[in-house]
Design a protein around this nucleic acid. Structure first.
Lengths: 215, 215
DNA sequence: GTCTATATAGAGATAGAC
DNA sequence: GTCTATCTCTATATAGAC
């Protein structure tokens, strides 16, 4: 009787209630935001009982945090691994550092499961002034940004810290915006999702590299 | 008996109910999002009656649209005016086009009234997938983006359209992110608000100009 | 671990007196 | 144009049976 909700892909028989809730919540948070997504909508779409969220996660806030944790842990790990790899070469190549930052993020939106939804959730998180959420992200993933800021400082020893932070912010903004596909101008939709992301990554690497090198 | 709510600055005796609602709503939308802001919170903080929102605006959705309209009209007008000015010089200078796009936006966050709140509202709007809102913004202000895209195409006749759109998206993302001050890394807070914004604008113009000129 | 049922609170919107 | 009062709906969370 349990499991096998309609959302399950064929041939993948067993998704736990907990995971179904996470998948559906992620997708709904992307579409309607945190405040705009009710637990009733989550549970009904996940085909689980309304009480299941509170049983498995304790509260809506904990559910939100858990949605972040399961993706961000993996993305941060990937980013740091790629950065460590880039650091092994001497001299440190700017494009390698940028790729280490950008590609794991854009790769997420190619995950066959809900990675694409998560990047929109992430974009919403930045727009939230919610202190709880900001603190959670800063506490758990702030060190990743700091690592990249150190690496970039090594690439540009003459650049003052202030300018460096601005440029890192511009990169993060452009990446977030591009990942979530916010543009109001529509582009050719002929490309596949994969080609679209690869194009985005290489365009952004070129754009940001030039930006960082600006006089 | 009417007017003179506590939020009014001294010496500015008469703010209409309608305007007080708009001001408070803007600030609360910035902080809590659209779904996260109840009309009860708006009206209580504006010191007006709960029924006043529906009387003056008809619905919450109309209130949201009105919050956008009163700022975006002015910003779009300014952007197009600055762009027209830039276009008068031959050859067209990239930095002038970028400044025409960037500076009116950052100037908004220096308005002595709630402009700073509005830029955060704007950032939230991008994160919303709300079709009603996207259509409203696209219908009313899409032509501004198209004007800039034409001007930039004139600056880079050899660049293909696809690449141009990407770069415009990166610019918009970096600008939105910088305006709303989303960065997780904190910068020196010694600078005044005005100096902060001017620094942001000149850094972004330099960053984006280099980015657009990238090979 | 999952269910039904419900407590409690808050939402947007409106009717009708003043 | 502003008020009170209220309709109707939905929210999160929990208690307790199975």
């Amino acid at each position: 009787m349990p499991c096998l909700a309609p959302v399950n892909a064929p041939g993948t028989p067993h998704f736990s209630t907990k995971q179904r809730i996470l998948d559906v919540a992620e997708s709904l948070f992307a579409e309607h935001g945190f405040a705009g997504t009710s637990l009733r909508l989550v549970t009904s779409q996940a085909a689980v009982n309304l009480a299941a969220v509170n049983y498995h996660f304790g509260s809506k806030d904990n559910l939100i945090a858990e949605v972040f944790r399961r993706r961000m842990d993996e993305m941060s790990r990937l980013r740091l691994e790629r950065l460590a790899q880039a650091r092994r070469s001497e001299p440190l190549v700017l494009e390698e550092v940028l790729r280490a930052f950008i590609e794991p993020a854009l790769a997420l939106s190619l995950d066959r499961d809900g990675g694409a939804a998560f990047v929109r959730v992430l974009a919403r998180a930045y727009a939230e002034r919610n202190e709880r959420l900001r603190k959670f992200l800063s506490d758990h993933y702030g060190h990743v940004l700091r690592e990249f800021s150190h690496a970039l400082a090594r690439c540009f020893p003459a650049l003052d810290k202030e300018a460096l932070y601005w440029r890192l912010d511009f990169l993060a903004g452009a990446l977030t915006y591009a990942m979530a596909d916010f543009g109001l101008l529509r582009r050719s939709s002929s490309a596949s999702e994969k080609a679209h992301c690869e194009r985005a990554a290489s365009e952004l690497v070129a754009f940001a590299a030039a930006g960082f090198r600006a006089g």
